[in-house]
């Protein structure tokens, strides 16, 4: 799959933002007044910034409001509904903390769950796709949720939670890579099932429909980055999990915490890039590619 920068930025930053909103909704850390204002501003910049960047890959962003209508069938629509609901509920809860020094806890918990729900619906957009076997597995939502919770804990300054959740997210990441590498083969979809010509003999793509490229090849057959995939996995894992955990275990300083957050964000961006670049869409089989 083509790793579109807007989608990578969206899923990384909104994942972090909604992760932070989850912790804030449960009153962790306890904030009020200006400190609440600072935390909520960071969370909203990340969550809303991510959502806005996701509209950059739309052909007709001016019609985006229509995307709220099909929540009964479409995970993308559900994501939109969930995101807006979470942002509105958390804005009211945040206003209570900032202006009235009042923690309306039921509202906070509802907002926290909606925030987590937004990350889950984002993950389900990818998980539902049978056409991309690497994504079509139950670990995909776990991967998105664990990283969002870990990143949120990191931003919320919850050192113990952050260390535990980062290690858990790291384990999930390794599992998704290992299972993902086998997914296409295990899906049973190959050039023989695509063409139904396997009964005659061994099928080989002889000639593509056109000498030039097309939308399908640009969007679904992305092979450039896979050459360095293993190296990038190591880099991503080091930045996303290992470095932040080590920095958090050192005696606390604000500078180290900032470095831990920056390393984590860079690592998640790399991980998300791999999430797309390594994903094989079955349509590539018709072109003798993957």
């Amino acid at each position: 799959m083509h790793p579109a920068p807007s989608v990578i930025a969206f899923s990384t930053f909104s994942g972090l933002g909604f992760g932070l909103l989850f912790w804030l909704g449960f009153g962790v850390p306890v904030v009020s007044g200006w400190s609440a204002f600072a935390f909520f501003t960071i969370a909203y910049l990340l969550a809303v910034g991510g959502l806005i960047s996701s509209t950059f890959h739309l052909g007709h962003p001016e019609r985006a409001l229509k995307a709220f209508t099909q929540w009964r069938s479409s995970w993308l629509s559900r994501e939109g509904v969930c995101a807006v609901a979470a942002l509105i509920v958390m804005a009211i809860y945040g206003a209570g903390l900032v202006f009235f020094d009042a923690a309306w806890q039921p509202l906070g918990i509802l907002g926290a769950l909606l925030s987590l729900g937004t990350v889950f619906t984002t993950a389900m957009i990818y998980t539902q796709l049978k056409t991309v076997p690497r994504w079509h597995q139950s670990l995909t939502p776990v991967y998105f949720l664990s990283l969002s919770l870990a990143g949120g804990a990191l931003l919320a300054g919850q050192i113990t939670w952050a260390v535990v959740l980062l290690i858990a997210a790291g384990a999930v990441q390794i599992a998704t890579w290992l299972l993902g590498d086998r997914a296409l083969k295990q899906s049973g979809t190959d050039i023989a099932s695509a063409t139904q010509l396997g009964g005659i003999g061994k099928v080989r793509a002889f000639e593509p429909p056109h000498t030039g490229t097309n939308y399908l090849l640009r969007e679904f057959v992305f092979q450039i980055g896979r050459k360095h995939a293993q190296k990038l996995r190591v880099i991503s894992f080091g930045l996303m999990v290992v470095l932040p955990v080590l920095l958090l275990l050192l005696p606390f300083s604000h500078l180290l915490a900032v470095v831990a957050v920056l390393a984590h964000v860079a690592g998640v961006l790399a991980s998300r890039w791999l999430f797309f670049a390594e994903a094989e869409h079955v349509v590539g089989l018709y072109y003798g590619k993957r």
């Binding site: 010509l197 003999g201 080989r204 793509a205 000639e207 593509p208």
Partner: peptide
């Protein structure tokens, strides 16, 4: 679109 396949 019309693809072409070689089957051996």
């Amino acid at each position: 679109r019309v693809h072409s396949y070689e089957v051996q």
